[in-house]
Every structure is written in structure tokens, then in C-alpha cells.
């Protein structure tokens, strides 16, 4: 039981880290540009497909991922300059609708370019195996790599936002946008840079999950809703909130899937528990979100100045 719990804890951590990569970009774009980007999941998909194609071209997953990152950033840049920029002045409703349209376009473009079947990404031999983390706890190497890279990115963001000039501008922009531009900062460029950063983080998440699941059409459409739950629970615009929220949601989702049907079996017939279990564990994260908002309408860690 305890072995299983530890493994599920690691699985939950891995999901949480992945959610963090998505949520970090969302919360940046949301916090600074006040822009709701439903199409953030499409960048996640695009990252995965770039990485898949490049893996077959270069013959190496690692090189492919390194090359796919600037490519995803480029997509983010083009998107921001081409369309998103013109939407900042509109209200949230228009954001939701326009980016909803984007999801349709992105999914169909991917279908046209890569075909419907999706691509499996081969991993190099040293990433395919398993590691004995603790005695008796055997865990896939690549999932550990995901956890590691996610934590590394989290630390990098912490440094970027807390210690660099760009980070200072981001923090300032989140607190008071007009003031930043009044100080002579080119707010347009800042916004573009932040959007591209968000795109890279989402793309990276896609690249990391694709060797496990495959790069497929519409892969971002379900997880993006979960990522929204994360930033709402954590507090919009807060990086700390996104991190803690992501780990929380990742763990709850995984542990729910793992143990809820066993718990339910104590109360309801086994057959009903087996089918209700997965549905109720999917519901759990929304229950958490509603509960958090009912008591703290601004999320757990709302940014201080607004």
C-alpha cells in the first residue's frame, strides 16, 4: 500500500509539474496582458508536433526538443503580432471567443499538415528504462526527467521574475500597466516577449508528454481546462499560486484516480464504484476549485497589488 502510494505520489507530481508548465504561461499572459488564452493548449500541441517531426529528422529526441523550443517561440511571436495584440483592448468575452476560434484552426491545420493519426516519439535508450528511486519503488526514467525539467523551469522562472530586469518589468507590468509604459518602457515588446515565453513553456510541456502519450490532434483541449483550474485555484497572475495549484491538482487527480474507487467500494456496490470512481475523481478538481472560490474568490495566492 505504501509503495503504491509513493509511486502514485510521483505520478501525481509528474502530472502536477506538467500542469505547472502550462499554467505558468497562462498566468503570465493573464496576469500581465489581462488576456484569456483558450488557445494556449494549441501551443502545447504544436510544440509536441514540432518535436516529433524533428526527432525523426535529427534522430535524437533531445536535439529535437532543443530545436523545437525556438520554433514554438516563433509561432508564439507570429500569433501575438498577427492577432492577439489586437485583442488586448477588448473584453474577456472577445478573448474567449477569438481564441476558441483559434483552437478550431490549429486542430485542423495540424490535421492537414501531419495527418490525423498522431506521431509516436521514440526515446533514446537511456530514457526508456526505469530507475529504482527507493528500494522497491521503480519509476520510469522519463517521468523522472519530466519532474526534473519542470522543477528546473520553476526555479528558472523564480530567478527570471525575481532577479532580472525582464522579471522586474513583468512584475511591474502585472501591478500597474499604465505606469510601466509611462516610464518609457516599450510595453508592446514586453507583451510580445511574455507571450512568446508562455508559448515556449506550453510547447515544452507538449514535448515532454508526447513521448509518453504521442503527439495527437486536440491533445491540448482537455488539459487546458485543467490548467485554467490550476491558475484559478492558485490566483490569477501569481506564479507561486500556479506552482502550488498545479502540484495540488496533479496530486488530487492522480490519487483520486488511484484510490477513489477503492474508497467508494466501502459505500456503494463494487460495479457502481468501478464506473463512478473515474467520473467522480475527474469531478474532484472542479469541486476543489468551486470550494476555493466560494471561500476565497481571488484564489489561494492572489497577487498583492492590482
Amino acid at each position: 500500500m505504501s509503495t503504491l502510494f509513493l509511486i502514485q505520489f510521483l505520478n501525481g507530481l509528474q502530472l502536477g509539474v506538467l500542469l505547472f508548465l502550462l499554467a505558468a504561461g497562462l498566468t503570465l499572459v493573464f496576469g500581465i496582458m489581462d488576456f484569456v488564452n483558450l488557445a494556449h493548449g494549441s501551443l502545447y500541441m504544436v510544440g509536441a508536433f514540432f518535436c516529433a517531426t524533428l526527432t525523426f529528422w535529427t534522430g535524437s529526441f533531445v536535439w529535437a526538443a532543443l530545436l523545437a523550443i525556438p520554433l514554438t517561440a516563433l509561432v508564439g511571436l507570429v500569433l501575438e503580432i498577427g492577432v492577439i495584440r489586437h485583442l488586448y483592448q477588448r473584453d474577456h468575452l472577445d478573448h474567449v471567443l477569438a481564441t476558441f476560434g483559434f483552437i478550431l484552426i490549429a486542430d485542423t491545420l495540424v490535421h492537414l499538415i501531419w495527418g490525423p493519426e498522431g506521431i509516436a516519439i521514440p526515446l533514446p535508450g537511456y530514457l526508456r528504462g526505469q530507475v529504482e528511486v527507493l528500494p522497491g519503488i521503480i519509476f520510469p526514467t522519463f517521468r523522472l526527467v519530466i519532474i526534473g525539467s519542470g522543477l528546473l523551469v520553476a526555479f528558472g522562472l523564480y530567478w527570471l521574475i525575481g532577479r532580472t530586469r525582464l522579471g522586474m518589468l513583468i512584475r511591474a507590468g502585472a501591478s500597474n500597466r499604465t505606469m510601466v509604459s509611462a516610464l518609457g518602457i516599450d510595453i508592446k515588446t514586453l507583451f510580445t516577449a511574455v507571450f512568446a515565453l508562455g508559448a515556449v513553456l506550453a510547447g515544452l510541456a507538449g514535448m515532454l508528454i508526447a513521448p509518453i502519450t504521442e503527439a495527437t490532434i486536440g491533445m491540448g483541449n482537455d488539459i487546458i481546462i485543467t490548467a485554467f483550474v490550476v491558475i484559478i485555484v492558485g490566483g490569477i497572475g501569481s506564479m507561486k499560486g500556479a506552482f502550488i495549484g498545479a502540484l495540488l491538482i496533479g496530486l488530487i487527480d492522480t490519487l483520486g484516480r488511484s484510490f477513489l474507487d477503492d474508497i467508494l467500494k466501502l459505500f456503494i456496490p463494487i460495479n457502481a464504484a468501478e464506473t463512478a470512481g473515474p467520473a467522480i475523481s475527474s469531478m474532484l478538481i472542479y469541486l476543489i476549485m468551486a470550494a476555493v472560490l466560494a471561500f476565497r474568490p481571488q484564489g489561494l495566492f492572489p497577487p498583492k497589488v492590482r
Binding site: 485554467f228 476549485m289 468551486a290
Partner: peptide
């Protein structure tokens, strides 16, 4: 604001 948009979505998902 956005919290309202998202919480209504959360209830629908439930």
C-alpha cells in the same frame, strides 16, 4: 470577471 467565467465552467464540468 474571469473568475466568474471560470467558476461557471467548473460547475458545468461537474
Amino acid at each position: 470577471g474571469v473568475y466568474f467565467i471560470m467558476i461557471t465552467m467548473a460547475f458545468a464540468q461537474m
